[in-house]
């Protein structure tokens, strides 16, 4: 059986600077896979390349058996690969509901969209309270909820979350991570990029550690949590 997402020897460069230096990994259907690493390791670049916002300089990305080479970003979404970008990137001057509708932009089934909007409000009751409010007036945590809910609106086969806990209070961070677990339990396939390594490893089936453009370590989330080098470098333990 082929994996949902297969990345083979992916290289991405900004001009002459290579940010991703040949990485390979797989995401199986129903799995939660996490990519951890420090700032500048190339995690966000990897996600941007997967969703078509950046073009790879070499390597292969296969999603649902299809080669993504040359597929523009707006068509990658249509294939079922949703990206909730770092820094949330919600549409600040549109209402919460309009943001959600934009998440379902490529869908034509009005009933299905209405159902999924309802599901988003069940998942995030706070968003229902603020339905007509401009998204820019939400708190950071609420904006993150909106970014995730919006990404789910296209009924993705694979949900890529980039730093969902960035800039949030510890309480809000717990809440967001709990939601990610909930999504996983509901069967969503997730590729999670996180700096909060402990939380990410705790929920991941499979984890990769990225350092300066390379994957240096991989294993199940449990194994990496117990790994000495990971504990030293990413979990702040002596």
């Amino acid at each position: 059986m082929t994996a949902l997402l297969e990345v083979e020897d992916l290289r991405v460069a900004y001009g002459k600077v290579e940010a991703v230096k040949g990485i390979s990994f797989r995401v199986e259907e129903g799995q939660a896979v996490t990519l951890i690493g420090t700032n500048g390791a190339g995690k966000t670049t990897t996600l941007h390349t997967l969703s078509g916002l950046l073009a790879p300089s070499a390597g292969r990305i296969r999603f649902r058996g299809q080669d993504l080479a040359g597929v523009p970003a707006h068509q990658v979404v249509a294939l079922g690969l949703a990206h909730s970008p770092e820094g949330r990137h919600i549409f600040p001057r549109l209402s919460v509901e309009e943001n959600l509708l934009l998440g379902a932009f490529l869908r034509k089934d009005a009933d299905g969209i209405a159902d999924d909007t309802e599901r988003a409000y069940v998942l995030f009751p706070r968003l229902r309270e603020r339905r007509t409010q401009a998204a820019g007036t939400l708190s950071g945590g609420e904006q993150q909820m909106l970014a995730m809910a919006r990404a789910l609106m296209c009924r993705p086969r694979l949900l890529m979350l980039d730093e969902p806990s960035m800039g949030l209070s510890p309480l809000m961070m717990k809440k967001i991570m709990a939601t990610v677990r909930e999504l996983k339990a509901a069967g969503t396939t997730i590729l999670l990029v996180e700096q909060n390594a402990r939380a990410a490893l705790a929920l991941a089936d499979q984890a990769y550690v990225m350092e300066t453009g390379r994957l240096v370590l991989s294993g199940s989330g449990r194994t990496l949590l117990d790994d000495d080098s990971v504990r030293k470098a990413y979990l702040g333990e002596a």
Partner: peptide, 8 residues
């Protein structure tokens, strides 16, 4: 960028 990521 976000609009593109929505499929626009």
């Amino acid at each position: 960028k976000a609009a593109t990521a929505m499929g626009i």
